[in-house]
Design a protein around this nucleic acid. Structure first.
Lengths: 346, 346
DNA sequence: CATTAGCACTCACATACATCGAGTGCTAAC
DNA sequence: GTTAGCACTCGATGTATGTGAGTGCTAATG
């Protein structure tokens, strides 16, 4: 651990660098922060801090810049948590309450709001449960040769598929078929849909057994959630505002990464496994994505109903405003969890 | 109209500039294109072309660059349409056939495919009809105090809303209620939902009349399509690859514009009114968005079922490859219309 | 008389070089 | 242990100069 004075100096460097993106020199610290010591003393301390790996000198005659290790120290020990302002709290709560019933709107607006408040890039992943199960299947006629299958899961996920056929059964038959399908497929895990079950359904469907295959496909597609975890991104353009990405090539690398859904998913990590753990901060090379080695990501999981978790992450340069982002993230996650709890009773 | 030689020179300048983004000089043309005239003659002709406004000299000792008027001439008179390669045709057709039943996947994958093929930015707007009408309303129980309302429209749009209540009616009641709601609200335009109709429904709903308000809200939200025209964007990062945007500030301006949904919608225009018209090309300042004055947009409408149209636009620098983009756009639009026609028989 | 060779001229861009200043490390004095 | 002082480093900035692609104009040419 560092002595008090070194700590203060490191903190000063980090705060200044977060604000200005310019290397900080000893004289600047001496003038700006009233530590009661001269620039020469600060120079000595900075030399030590560099030897310890907390700060880096970009070139011989420049000031110092925090290293990943420096930020890590800051985040773990120096940073004080901040309360979100009343105004922002209200803003986020309104977003959540207005959109809580539409998971897609909620995610879209949440992502947008967070990137607006923080001026960084936000990614949000759809909530998932370990095992999604079907609660209800409904067949709805659309026209002479199309029916829509609507599948509702326990996670309020509603998926619909169009099924084309020569002649659509009448309303009554469709309703009966919906009942049969729901009865057999309700509460099943994918592994439990076996040949015997299929045979049973087919028998009961009778003349309409041609419907079975497309429905089963639709059900499997719906409950095997990995199939399409939605990820929402917002505020990618904010990247361009930071001097560290004023080189177009660097900016381009980040943008390419951000358009790769698979990369985003792995960056956010598995919300289910992270479910319980608190907010996480990955600094620079601590995340494994090569293109993101100059970025930090702060992420946390939110609870959206029983056993259902999603992840929200905010990406910015390593010199991002950790305090602010942590406050905003904690705020939004609490709002979502609270509103959901109030609605569903747990 | 220009004489043959001027035309050839203008064409050479435009082709070269599209390929290289560098101003073209008279010597370059003389060497590269075998026009049988010397650079001096070309200089004279270029001087005329500049006077006529088709090309511009960025500064006194530079070559020439096409003006918006030059591109307009090229697009209207010089450009030859190109067939899309077999490989790309197949690629696009597969995208369409694999996703045709999921309008959201279709749009997402179409946008992605187009930006991949063209290396420009793609925006796609959801198909709409002038008047969306409700075909079916279904209430589905989710848990003790939540039901899901599923609203299916004639455009295969399926929207769902969660409705929270103290005590959810049983399955049978929900089914009956679905029938009543469908009966009254089916085939209505928003303007036709008046006080009298509401009263009729309320009477028939009896003890469940508390359901009416949220359902009506959901229906209105669904059929008043302006409420949320979805717009999908893909390949924004491609902007960064063009030297005309190597200045980060210019790139940033474009990105900000691209994140404004309202701007995109107005840029694409009203698909319904454009429905019949062929592909459109807006060059540079011909579009009204200030930030896009160095960009061209090529857009066209696709037909997604009866009276249902959406728009696809591709945005690039004014020196974009018009020939290629036109071929790709015509290709995808035909695929979508054809597949839809085959499926729905009209 | 349209075309072209030739030439002086222009101007963005690159290169070289001097200067400046923020910042450092080291030493010696306090 | 702290600090004043100083020589030193090196990126950034400014200035001069050269280079080359490109032009417009003029006079010669078939």
């Amino acid at each position: 651990m560092l002595n008090d004075r070194k700590t203060k100096i490191l903190e000063a460097i980090i705060n200044d660098y977060i604000a200005t993106a310019e290397p900080i020199g000893s004289r600047t610290i001496a003038k700006k922060y009233d530590l009661g010591i001269s620039s020469a003393t600060i120079r000595n301390e900075m030399s030590d801090l560099e030897e310890l790996g907390f700060i880096i000198q970009p070139h011989a005659s420049a000031g110092r810049v925090p290293s990943d290790k420096g930020y890590r120290m800051y985040v773990d020990n120096l940073m004080r948590e901040k309360e979100l302002s009343q105004e922002h709290t209200k803003y986020l709560r309104d977003i959540v309450t207005n959109n809580i019933n539409h998971i897609d709107y909620l995610m879209e607006h949440t992502a947008k709001a967070l990137s607006l408040l923080t001026n960084y890039t936000t990614i949000v992943s759809e909530p998932k449960t370990k095992y999604t199960i079907v609660k209800h299947i409904q067949l709805i006629p659309l026209d002479e040769n199309t029916i829509i299958s609507v599948i509702v899961t326990d996670t309020k996920l509603v998926k619909n598929h169009a099924i084309h056929m020569a002649q659509v059964p009448d309303m009554g038959a469709l309703h009966a078929l919906s009942g049969i399908l729901t009865k057999y497929l309700q509460n099943r895990l994918p592994g439990q849909i076996d040949a015997k079950l299929m045979q049973d359904i087919e028998n009961e469907l009778g003349e309409h057994k041609a419907l079975l295959a497309p429905i089963i496909d639709a059900v499997l597609e719906t409950i095997i959630v990995e199939r399409d975890v939605q990820v929402y991104t917002s505020g990618a353009k904010n990247i361009l505002a930071f001097p560290e990405f004023s080189d177009v090539d660097k900016a381009k690398a980040i943008f390419e990464a951000l358009e790769q859904k698979q990369m985003l998913i792995s960056l956010l990590g598995d919300a289910l496994e992270l479910g319980g753990t608190p907010l996480q901060i990955l600094i620079g090379t601590e995340n494994t994505v090569q293109e993101m080695k100059n970025c930090s990501i702060i992420k946390t999981t939110y609870r959206y109903g029983k056993d259902s978790y999603g992840t929200i992450g905010i990406i910015g340069p390593t010199r991002m405003n950790y305090v602010e982002v942590v406050a905003v993230l904690n705020g939004i996650v609490n709002h979502i969890s609270n509103v959901i709890k109030k609605l569903s009773g747990g």
